[in-house]
Simulated assay, not measured.
Amino acid sequence: MKNIPDRFGIATSSIAVVLCWFAIDTIVAEALTPKPQPFAQELARAEPISGASLADWTAKAALRGDLVGDIAMARAAPALNRGTTAETPEKAAARQRALATASASLALAPHSSAMWLLVAMLSSRTQTEASVAAVLKMSYLTSSSDANLIPTRLAVLSLSPAIADPELRSLLRSDIRLILTRRPDLKAAIAGAYRAGSAEAKAIIDEDVRSIDPGFATSLL
């Protein structure tokens, strides 16, 4: 019985040390992680990450999937920038590194719709149509009505062979209806997806828009 206070003291001291380390790690991770940027099909080029390896390690050690996701976004910018269409070795390496970081973010925060969408964008060149379709569905399932993601989701899906998937076609239609009925400020996203999309995407967009807003449908042509 005499040892109980000593054991309690050791336990509480150990917990205090762990909590202190966790707090310091979180502060360092937040300081090193790039600032979040708005999600878009072509991400803004971020400044090089200061202490990239340390930022990675501290964010993962703090179990902060959101911070790991911010690092993934910064790393994805060079790979997703469409200024050059050729897939150079540097661009391919950036794509793979960003994909690995985004996957690590999802391991910590599987509810992140933005990260599922980023993984779909990064893997579109290397994965099968079925794999990309499955990832895109996860982006919808985790947050189907996130207005910040709808423009990019429309743009990505309208260009992807995965649009052949019946479930994704239905989800695309849901986004279109949401914009036309509740978020008319996002109509430019529909126009952009229509103009850049595949023939199949154009047909779906035209049909849905024409059934709800014939005037806007005319402007797409």
Rank of each mutant, 00 (worst) to 15 (best):
D165H: 03
D165G: 05
D165V: 03
D165Y: 01
P166I: 08
P166Q: 07
P166Y: 01
P166F: 01
E167R: 14
L168T: 08
L168C: 07
L168Q: 08
R169E: 13
R169Q: 15
S170M: 04
S170N: 15
S170Y: 05
S170H: 10
L171V: 06
L171R: 15
L171E: 14
L172E: 14
L172R: 13
L172M: 15
L172D: 12
L172Y: 11
R173W: 00
R173G: 15
S174F: 11
D175P: 10
D175H: 09
D175A: 03
D175N: 13
D175L: 02
I176V: 13
I176W: 01
R177T: 13
R177A: 08
R177I: 09
L178T: 12
L178E: 12
L178S: 12
L178Q: 12
L178R: 10
L178H: 10
I179G: 06
I179H: 05
L180I: 11
L180M: 14
L180Q: 12
L180Y: 03
T181P: 02
T181H: 01
T181M: 02
R182Y: 01
R182C: 03
R182H: 10
R182K: 14
R183P: 07
R183K: 15
P184Y: 00
D185W: 00
D185I: 12
D185E: 15
D185V: 14
L186V: 05
K187I: 06
K187Q: 14
A188V: 10
A188E: 09
A188W: 02
A188D: 13
A188L: 08
A189S: 15
A189G: 10
A189H: 09
I190M: 02
I190R: 02
A191M: 06
A191K: 13
A191W: 01
A191T: 15
G192A: 09
G192V: 05
A193S: 11
A193Y: 01
A193R: 05
A193M: 04
Y194S: 06
R195D: 09
R195L: 10
A196C: 02
A196Y: 00
A196R: 12
A196G: 11
G197E: 02
